[in-house]
Design a protein around this nucleic acid. Sequence first.
DNA 1: CCCGTCGTTATTTTT
DNA 2: TAACGACGGG
Length: 766
Amino acid sequence: MADIQSYLSVLNAEQKEAVEHEGSPLLILAGAGSGKTRVITTKIAYLISEKGIPAWNILAVTFTKKAAKEMSERAIKLDERAKDAQIRTFHSFGSWFLRRYSQEAGLDQNFTVYDEDDMLTLLLKAVPSLTRQAAGKAVHKISLAKDFCLTPDSKELYTIEADPDFPEIYEAYEKRLHSTGNVDFGDLIMLPVKILQQNEKIRAQMQYRFRVIMVDEYQDSNVAQFKLLQELSGLNEGSGTYVCVVGDDDQSIYRFRGAEVQNILNFQQYFPGTKLIRLERNYRSTAQILHAADCVVSKNESRLGKTLIAERGEGSKPVLAFCPTQEDETQFCADLIQEAHRQGCPYSDWAILYRMNAQSLGFESEFLRRKIPYTVVGSLKFYQREEIKDILAFLALIANPRDEIAFRRIINKPAHGIGEKTQDAVVDFAKQSLAGSLVEAAKSCSKTSSKKAGAALLEFADLMDSFTERIGIDMIEEAEETADSAAAVQNDQNAPSDESTSRLSDFIDEVAEKSGLFEYHKSQDEISGTQKVANIQELENNALFYPCNRKGLLDFLDSIELDRSLEETSGDATDSVTLITLHNTKGLEFPRVIITGLETGIFPRQDKTGSDLEEERRLFYVGITRAKNQLYITSCSVRRLYGKTEFMMPSQFLIDAGKDSFTVIGKIPPAFARAIQNNAGRTSIDNEIDEDLSDDFSDGYSAENTALSKKWKKGVRVFHDDYGYGQIIEGAFRGEEYVITVIFENGGKKSFIPKYQSNNLTVIKD
DNA sequence: CCCGTCGTTATTTTT
DNA sequence: TAACGACGGG
């Protein structure tokens, strides 16, 4: 292990200052690519080796498991003792806390975590009168309420959902959830906060335990997480805990999920005496790219403000490509990538970024055709696949026989003739009973149910009993700090041995086999050519290093539940283009980046205004700052959206960036050309659309278009399948397309291209 | 209980 | 457009 001083010596002045700072709360404003992970990890090592702080007194929280893992590994590289530090995600910390204080939380010690799907199922059972849609909406609101630490009886609940029925719905959901002994994601943060607030002794324990607390990606923390930090650090009690948060207000992009930018904007007010350090030297992107990024984000009003300084030279100007159609967009991207590949640039240098997952489709089919290898990141997640959820439900029910959702999921899969009515009876029975075990309830109900269902219930209960016996009934011992932090890491070498010679993976295999789920999904594979069995085996692989006992099972379920992004294609390090949503790119970087679909209505989305619009703009900023060497941006004039062909306007974000930021290729849409000239003070190019632009750009249109312009001329009455009756108020050529604008009787105004039949628009003949 | 057909509905989503 | 859920007939 090299001397800590040598690690300090590679830092720049600000980074060094941040590492060595002590004595007051610290807010590090770390711009994109400014080496913030290096600062945090060095700081951890520094505190241990130079300041003599025991590693177990250090708590570092991140948002993703990936980030936690990276942070832990890098810190350990700097100082081995860092392995004893608690480096976790917020949620895994909550899970650790709740298991430790499950009694105080009123939870089953073997609780598992319900995801959004499970929440929906649960809510539909708790409030059967809700439609699926209404329940989905309510689930979202409940999650949001928990993000803000609001309970059903909170006065401010209306700020989340104004519907007067909502508190009642939320209440019913909570009651039902509580009877399962499980938690949802929101609880992992909210319950620890409640316990800490109410229980002085536990609060004191925690404050004694953690002398140093660091939070990464602080800009994306929500209110509940802020309160957790507040309680853990003893903010109001002068506990002397050292708090250091790192974040970038310009990269806050999860407000829709409860992230509260105010947390970072007002950090200095909440934590008096805070020292602020800005990391503004960017070691990732070239100056031209950073310039564009800065032009964009500086249009936002609510920000602390910082300017990135390029440390890597000028580089080449970002390219802005206007494409007539989305097919041209895919061609453009594919051409770029193939041409670069011919010149020796690996596919993996490229990432294609988009706003919506649906946008990946076009690229996928074109890349398939051209044999360009690609990897789609994050669209369908491993954990939420049917077969995986099935197996996990079985395991969850073994861990906690009160798990209603898990029970319902697998009790009749494959079909044994146990219908919904029988299920309801079992659940009701379990609720009446003291222990609430659904397995025991199944036994009891088998007597009163129909012959077929009764036999199936008994068989099921026997199966469950044999599994439970196999996994052992020993409660998880208070295996303190030693084991559990390490056990969460999969490759823990100590785990498998012990008394349990068998591995959890074998047990899961047995569960899959005996439950009939293996057989069931195998036949599904044969029918529809899916990969379900392979996925189950992949799941088993992940359980290889967990011991086959209760603790191993719980640790495994925890790691799965809390890591929904289970690395997809694990082994293959193939050279491929990355297709990814803008949100998913946070923390990543690529030598060459293409941001696609810069069109009003897509990016930014139509309904975004005010602070929502600012968040979209930050998302664009995040996208731009992923690029190291080359950045391309595309914008289409025509796009097929939800089965309709729509005329698109370029995104106003392009105006924010300013034309001088780009090398422009393709035909500049005239409205955009004007807007960009009048850049100053203009916030929306919508103003420009109203002007008649046809005169300047009427050359070169075809006879076909001439005919169209006669049929679809100003004043003609039309009917649209969705919008109803309307009148054409304008017919004009925009570039090569003849475009009409229609005002509908319901007051809406829309533009169409009559050339495309799929507009669902017809001329009304008088 | 399984399968086909019709109708509806489309963000982003660390955990 | 496409994908998924709800519903009804075998």
